[in-house]
Design a binder for these strands. Sequence first.
DNA 1: TGTACATCAGTGAACGCGCGTTCACTGATGTAC
DNA 2: TGTACATCAGTGAACGCGCGTTCACTGATGTAC
Lengths: 209, 209
Amino acid sequence: MRETAAAESRPYHHGDLRRALIDAARRLLESEGPSALSLRAVAREAGVSPAAPYHHFKDKAELLDAVAHEGWEMLDAALAAARDGANSMREVMAALGVAYVCFARDNPALYRVMYDCSRDKEDLPEHLHADNDSAYCRVRDTLIAAGADPSDEVGIELATVAAWCAAHGLAEMAGFKQFERLKTALGGEEAFLRGVFEHMGLFARGLGD
Amino acid sequence: MRETAAAESRPYHHGDLRRALIDAARRLLESEGPSALSLRAVAREAGVSPAAPYHHFKDKAELLDAVAHEGWEMLDAALAAARDGANSMREVMAALGVAYVCFARDNPALYRVMYDCSRDKEDLPEHLHADNDSAYCRVRDTLIAAGADPSDEVGIELATVAAWCAAHGLAEMAGFKQFERLKTALGGEEAFLRGVFEHMGLFARGLGD
DNA sequence: TGTACATCAGTGAACGCGCGTTCACTGATGTAC
DNA sequence: TGTACATCAGTGAACGCGCGTTCACTGATGTAC
């Protein structure tokens, strides 16, 4: 990683090609969409021969996994920031939901790759559930902090899953043209997102409010 | 379509190749998954040359659209049946939700194609919204029948969208291994689905129940 | 400090593959007379 | 009822393409002495 020569054309050794490949993949992903994400295209985007990635990834799937992994970490960071930025306990849940959907809106192709990778394994990333300060735990803790009965483990778990489903569902739906009228009627996309979250309960229960 | 010769090997003219191609696509979809759904593979599965489909579909996208369209009609029928089968007003909403998720569970690859086609157009199928007895209207009418204020158009629309998001989100989530423990704890998949739907409200509001 | 050499991280050409699509064709069908 | 002919719905060979992956290779790096 000779700093002195770094500015010259291209050194033979890259320095951190693994990093560069993931970055190239993400660039490609957002500019061309998930279907354009071939190993060769990523190598091309990184300015490297098609065989070079094989020194850093076993195969294409491993590269995609790495990209997805980074996506989950970004989402996790976005959720952590949203929670920390909320002014009151009552706002935390909505803030998390909006942050989740906004992440998906701002990184649509990455978000798709993240879920496609998980679906292939039939497994969400483990650390989402397992870690102590994971996104999953943040939702659960918010439920408890907001007054949910901590002894009702199943209920809390179901509500956490429900929140996750709602966020994912809205994330995939929010982009459809059908909702544009509603968005403008409510005065913006974020108001629309909050509105949908707030009405989640309305259809599930006997009704009310 | 000479019935007399229909049983012999293969007549030169197929009779209804368009139908046969869509059926072949669906067979392929469920046995091999969405990534296996190439025009050539569909033709192969239907026992026909790779050029034959072009007499019935402009290109690959048009064939996929036809498959997706049929998927939406099947989903619509499943939802109508679920509504008609519900014993009480209170059950309708849950029945619709469970039917939706079960459709996705039973036709995972088809469900994926349906959404991928929609996403490419950034448009859900029009008739879902527009028709008078559409799935969308069924959810909305259920909300009203259950006591929602019919004059609160925006609220009802938001709740309908929320229901749709929740169903879609759960449909995509239900297959993950992480939830198996919860499913068995609750005594089966359907109980899990109902549980998640019933807890949709719990996370969105101030809490309660 | 200088040199021999193992190791690492690239190259670029090649492999076989399945794809979407086009083309000139031909067999079967149905209609006009 | 028979025949000529336009139309329809197939065939199968071919096109060019980009893909994932492998291979023998080579330039650069770092370590032992």
